[in-house]
Design a protein around this nucleic acid. Structure first.
Lengths: 168, 168
DNA sequence: GGTGCACGCTTTGAGTTCGAAGCAAGTAGA
DNA sequence: TCTACTTGCTTCGAACTCAAAGCGTGCACC
């Protein structure tokens, strides 16, 4: 607000465009590979990967949603697909009858194990190969700081657990 | 393939996740603002912005598509929406009857001018405020290098056509 | 025990994206 | 000229996402 610069300088603008293009191309390439290699979308892979990484391979739907999709219904849809393929199972939580606990099956673990090497390889080829090692620490630090800042200032409608409807 | 490291180390993995999360949150936030402020999606804004930036405010459909969407049909759809709102016009090219030349209208220019300050402001707040100036040159350089590398090694299905090295 | 609200998930409808197929216009070779 | 191939865009169908609405459960307070 009180910033004297009304817009962004050329370097900032370039960094902004480059960021969006890089992430877009990366996601597209990775998604393409996952579909070809394991018939998984990027979102489905993220879901499975989170579960594999979780203790006991189990997570509540809500916890699973954070960071993967921006709506609960989107997760329900994807979980339905994964369930039908036998990659996950869903069961009501014994602690809270409302919650649904999602668990990876052995087939799900195997699929993740099968596609993970190629996935990682793709990321390394596209993202880290053109980047010299000395840049990585800076990039890592900057992105981490930006991410924390964004999490602290979330978009208006993203996480207000309290107010269901938007004030709009 | 010839790289001895089979996977990614912790720092690389963290940078990868941070990159995807930052770009996702940024796009979500910017998209939300554009919708609220000008009833535009991010894609629609990109289309208009490219046209405003082009000489005479005119571009062929194909040239317009690069970097905005991954399919021609997606652009046709969005161009239809923008056309209906009077923000662009479409006319067959006099040089090549197959081509469609898209032009921004005055209304389109006005709309871009109206939403641009808020858009830029959002980006500055979210992306550049948590980043101290000393990091920007490195980030800019790294992302630029990665982007060029990705453009040189495009995803399998993205560029079946001949070379499309768009400059700019 | 009841009542009212908050929470967790699913269902539904509208909108957006992609790839494949289709159509029209240009181009090269005979 | 005719034919076959390429290019530029649109149409179509399927898949996916989101927000809103709906349903059942849990909790706070009386």
């Amino acid at each position: 607000m009180s910033d004297p610069t009304p817009g962004l300088n050329a370097e900032q603008l370039g960094a902004y465009f480059a960021l969006m293009e890089v992430s877009s191309l990366l996601q597209y390439a990775v998604d393409e590979h996952l579909r070809a290699d394991g018939d998984l979308s990027y979102v489905q892979f993220q879901i499975l990967a989170r579960l594999v990484d979780a203790p006991d391979g189990r997570l509540r739907m809500t916890d699973l949603a954070d960071g993967v999709v921006y709506s609960r219904s989107g997760l329900t849809y994807q979980a339905g697909l994964l369930d039908r393929r036998g990659l996950i199972t869903r069961a009501p939580s014994p602690d809270d009858e409302r919650s649904v606990i999602v668990s990876v099956t052995d087939a799900g673990r195997e699929l993740v194990a099968r596609v993970l090497p190629g996935h990682v390889d793709r990321v390394r080829q596209l993202l880290f190969e053109p980047m010299k090692g000395r840049d990585l620490p800076v990039l890592s630090a900057v992105l981490g700081r930006v991410r924390d800042h964004m999490r602290a200032n979330p978009p208006r409608s993203a996480k207000p657990r309290a107010g269901r409807g938007r004030a709009g």
